[in-house]
Each structure stands twice: as C-alpha cells, then as structure tokens.
Design a protein around this nucleic acid. Structure first.
Lengths: 157, 157
DNA sequence: CCCGAATCCGACCTTTTCAATAGGGTTCCG
DNA sequence: CGGAACCCTATTGAAAAGGTCGGATTCGGG
C-alpha cells in the first residue's frame, strides 16, 4: 500500500543523472543505465515517456542520446511523476472520471484521502530535479550513487 | 502507485461505523458489512487484525460482535492503518530491515521518499476516528454513507 | 553506401499483490 | 443441542508490476 513504483524511481534517477551531465551533449540510455543500475530496455520505456511529456529531448542514431529539455531547476519531481504514472489518486473516489462510489461527498472518509493526496503532491511539487542533483553531488561527489562495485574503483572519468 | 488498499478503506469504515454505534453493545460483523457495503468474510479478516492490535474487542457466539476498545478520539487513523498494513514504507530503501539498496545515505533520492513518508504519516496521525465519525454524521445524518439503495429506504432503526 | 550505434515501438512474459471466497472449527447464549 | 457469531487458514481469479524481446528506424563516420 502506498508504494512508489520502481518505474518512477528509475525515471527520477535518470533525470538526476542527466542533470549531473547537463551541458555535455546527449547521454545515451546505455550510460544512464550503467551509472544508475537500471535495466536498459526498461529504462528506454521511461525515457520515452519522459520525452512525450517534453521533459527530455532525445536524438537517434550514432552519437545520439537524451538530454534535459529544461533547466533542472525548472523540472519538478511532480512533473516526472506525472509523466510516468499519469494523474495521481490515492483512492479511486477522488478520481473525477471514476464512478464506483458517488462522490457527492456523502462519504466523510473521502476528505481523508484528499488530504493524503495533497500532502504527497506538495512534496512532489516543491522539490526539483536540481535539488536532487545538488543533494546527490554533495553526498557522493565522485562515485555513482548506489552501485557497490563503484566503491572499489579508484575513480570514474 | 501510491494507491490506498481496499482493505484499509474497509477497516476505517468499519471502525467509523463502530464509533457511530458506540455504547450500544457489540455490533455483529454482519451489520457492519451491510451498513458499509463490505463483503462479510473479507471484513471479518480486517476485524480480526484490528482485534489483534487492540483497537477493537470482539465477542463470540450468539449476541456477540465487535466494539471499540478505546474512545473514538483515542484511535488515530494511523493506528488503524498500521494494524491493517503493518509498517508503512513508500520505498523499500526506507525499510531498515531491507538491504536491497544500501541505506548509508549515499542515495540523494532517499530523502525525497522520506519526505513523502513523513507527509503521509502526519495526515494519518493527526486525524482520529472521532473526527471521521463526526464528519460523517454531519454529512449524512440519517442514511448509510454510500449505499445507493439506502437512499430509497424511509429510515433505518 | 554500408555498418554500427542509438532511439523507437509494441508485444510478450513472469512474478507478485490485491480482493475476494471458501471450508471448517470454536465459542457462546438460550 | 442448535443456531448465531467469531476465528483461522487456504485457495482462487484478476490485475498490476517489473522486466524482456524482436525488430524497425535513424543517424554519423569511414
């Protein structure tokens, strides 16, 4: 319950990786996948979704890859989440297009779920990719953020 | 992603129903199920979980049923959620007993999920069953909260 | 012009989780 | 004793999550 999907985690990591390499030309999905430990073919799908939402731009063919379409500080986590997951409703009765329970507000519990929704949205809206990238750089300036083997390598170009 | 489970919704509705009938002796699961439109056998399981966490007391045999073990104002939504779902971690890396990613905080994104967790917990901790019951009574003083047929019946004892 | 690097697209598959159902046992009141 | 009620465990069916695959397209460099 209330689990964040792996898809979303991967997408955010990808975008952070792109932020860290901003201004260095297109980054191939392959490199993002390696750096962040994401299955390549799976990552491609999320990258495609990010592209369709206009968050990243991508170039095909040799020398191609992806880069951020906006400044990292202009991309909120909420934008990434929306691109990957679509509109977020913690309970179906909050979804205007759902008619399983009537939402003429006879249900007192609906308000509770509404508060959950707002609370989560607020977190997603006030944090940007730039914030995450900065935090990451601060914590792990030289190595990739999670991969155990990376800790053994002397450095990384 | 980030969906609240039906189990939890049912459990909360059940507890609210019990709050509305507090002081009227044990309420059979059957009646809760009817009033709230919950499959009986399914409800029983949640009621059992609530019992094990000490939120409701139950009595077997004829004339038996369930009643709240504490004042509605003493039961937070968080207590119900914990009883049904166990500890809540929106991402596995927040779980101290999980070692899929190391949580030596090399990962900058972990902080984001932590904020989501806190935000949701806060909502659950500051709202009590009494609040929900009050809200419900205020909105739908005479009928059950959601069942369409109930709107057609003249009243309910 | 061709080869290899890379994205793009949609179908497929496997595992897990969710929601619900089922069977059978136990306890208690009258 | 009989029926009302809870109690416990297992099973099922459907859906979603997580990942894989084949192949098409597009580009740059030799």
């Amino acid at each position: 319950m209330l689990k964040i999907s792996q898809k979303t985690e991967y997408a955010i990591r990808a975008v952070v990786e792109l932020a860290l390499r901003a201004g260095q030309g297109p980054v191939p999905a392959r490199e993002i996948a390696d750096a962040q430990g994401i299955p390549l073919r799976f990552l491609e799908q999320q990258l495609s979704a990010l592209g369709k939402s206009g968050l990243v731009e991508s170039f095909r063919g040799a020398g191609g890859g992806a880069l951020l379409a906006k400044e990292p500080s202009e991309i909120r986590v909420a934008d990434v989440v929306d691109a990957i997951e679509g509109p977020f409703f913690p309970m179906h009765c909050l979804d205007p297009s759902d008619h399983t329970c009537f939402q003429d507000s006879r249900c007192g519990i609906q308000g509770l779920w509404g508060e959950v929704q707002s609370a989560v949205r607020l977190v997603f809206e006030r944090m940007t990719v730039a914030d995450l990238a900065l935090q990451h750089r601060h914590i792990a300036p030289e190595s990739a953020m999670w991969s155990p083997e990376d800790l053994l390598k002397p450095s990384r170009s």
